[in-house]
C-alpha cells in the first residue's frame, strides 16, 4: 500500500501511462482531504477464484457508496464477471457456478463502471490488500496503470484498535462478522460481493461515528 506521502507522486507518474481516460482522470483528480461526513466513500468487495491475483480472476464486484455519513443504497452496484477459466474450488465459498458466471459481463465493463463510481472518492475494503491486489493487476493488464486511489481498510483499523486495547489478536478476531459484533452490528449472511460490501460499509460507519 502506498504511504500518504508517496501516493501523489505515484499517481503523477502513472497517470501518463494510463490508457483509459477514466483511469487517467481518477489518477489526476485532487485527493479528498475533508472529514468523515464530507467524504465520499466507495466500499468495495470482490469475489475471486483464488486468493492470489496471479492464480485467479475477479468473479464478481459489488460496491455501496457512503455520502454524508450514510450508506446510499441507490448507488449500490453488483457485477458478475464472465471469467476466462473455470471457477474451480472457490465456488464452494462464493456460491457461484460456471453457469452463473457465463451470464456475467466483461471484466472491462465492470471496471469502467467502477472507475466512474469512484470519482473524488476514498475506497474502503475489509482486507484491502487482497482486493486491491486483484484490482491493480486487472487495471494494469487492461489499461496500463494500477488503481492508485486513497484506500481505507476496516480490517487494518480494527487490528490496530485491538492491539492497542488488548495487545493480542486471536485467530478469527479480524473476520468481518467478528468485527461487526464488537460494534454491536447485527449478524448477516455474508458471501455475496454486494452483501459483504454493505456489511463492510456499516462497519465503517460504526467505526467513524463519534
Amino acid at each position: 500500500m502506498s504511504s500518504a506521502l508517496t501516493l501523489p507522486l505515484q499517481r503523477a507518474w502513472w497517470r501518463r501511462k494510463a490508457r483509459h481516460p477514466l483511469l487517467a482522470q481518477r489518477l489526476a483528480e485532487p485527493l479528498p482531504h475533508l472529514g468523515f461526513s464530507q467524504t465520499r466513500y466507495v466500499v468495495i468487495d470482490l469475489e475471486t477464484t483464488a486468493l492470489e491475483p496471479d492464480a485467479g480472476e475477479i468473479a464478481s464486484i459489488g460496491w455501496v457508496v457512503i455520502e454524508q455519513a450514510a450508506v446510499q443504497l441507490s448507488q449500490a452496484r453488483h457485477f458478475h464477471v464472465a471469467v476466462q477459466n473455470e471457477v474451480g474450488r472457490s465456488a464452494v465459498f462464493h456460491q457461484l457456478t460456471d453457469s452463473d458466471l457465463e451470464q456475467g459481463v466483461a471484466l472491462s465493463r465492470a471496471l469502467e463502471a467502477l472507475l466512474e463510481a469512484i470519482e473524488h472518492s476514498v475506497l474502503v475494503f475489509h482486507n484491502a490488500q487482497l482486493d486491491m491486489g486483484f484490482l491493480n493487476q486487472a487495471m494494469k493488464t487492461l489499461w496500463g496503470a494500477p488503481l492508485l486511489m486513497p484506500v481505507r481498510d476496516t480490517m487494518a483499523v480494527e487490528r490496530k484498535r485491538l492491539l492497542q486495547r488488548s495487545g493480542a489478536i486471536r485467530a478469527g478476531d479480524l473476520r468481518l462478522f467478528q468485527c461487526r459484533r464488537r460494534y454491536g452490528l447485527p449478524d448477516v449472511t455474508l458471501h455475496d460481493a454486494l452483501g459483504d460490501a454493505l456489511a463492510t460499509a456499516e462497519l465503517w460507519l460504526a467505526m467513524n461515528t463519534p
Partner: peptide, 8 residues
C-alpha cells in the same frame, strides 16, 4: 448490475 437485488 445497475439495479441489484440487495438481499440483506
Amino acid at each position: 448490475p445497475n439495479h441489484p437485488e440487495i438481499q440483506a
